[in-house]
């Protein structure tokens, strides 16, 4: 299983990748914003995308729109501080598969990952 991790914080990417490793996923690619993320997505084949929302250059929401616009149905989990109902609805309408708000406990993240890694 190959996972694309997109977050402008390198520390947050490491935290997420540690959780991915803990559920047996070791093949990961990192990107620091939505534009970099879409470039990486187009250059490779991924089984899941984990993305932040607020990032420079191109946001996570725009990345989701780009990926869905390209016709991909890959599971996308948005991991973000944005938790207002209108924003969650906007993310779902854009094509987000699942949503996790920061801060989170490591078990919460692992439970989300387990759900899609199992598939």
């Amino acid at each position: 299983m190959k996972v694309l991790v997109v977050d402008d914080s390198g520390v947050m990417r490491k935290i997420i990748i540690r959780s991915l490793n803990a559920v047996g996923v070791n093949d990961t690619v990192e990107a620091g914003d939505g534009a970099e993320g879409f470039k990486a997505f187009q250059a490779d084949s991924f089984d899941m995308v984990l993305t932040d929302w607020n990032m420079p250059v191109r946001s996570g929401l725009e990345l989701v729109q780009d990926i869905r616009g390209a016709g991909s149905q890959v599971p996308i989990i948005m991991i973000t501080t944005e938790a207002q109902k209108t924003q969650v609805i906007a993310a779902i309408q854009a094509g987000v598969t699942d949503y996790l708000t920061k801060p989170f406990e490591s078990d919460d993240l692992r439970a989300k990952l387990d759900k899609y890694v199992a598939v």
């Binding site: 914080s9 607020n54 973000t80 501080t81 944005e82 938790a83 207002q84 708000t101 920061k102 801060p103």
Partner: peptide, 10 residues
């Protein structure tokens, strides 16, 4: 700071 600010915003 991002998480504290973002969580407070909610």
């Amino acid at each position: 700071a991002n998480m504290i600010g973002g969580n407070a915003k909610e």
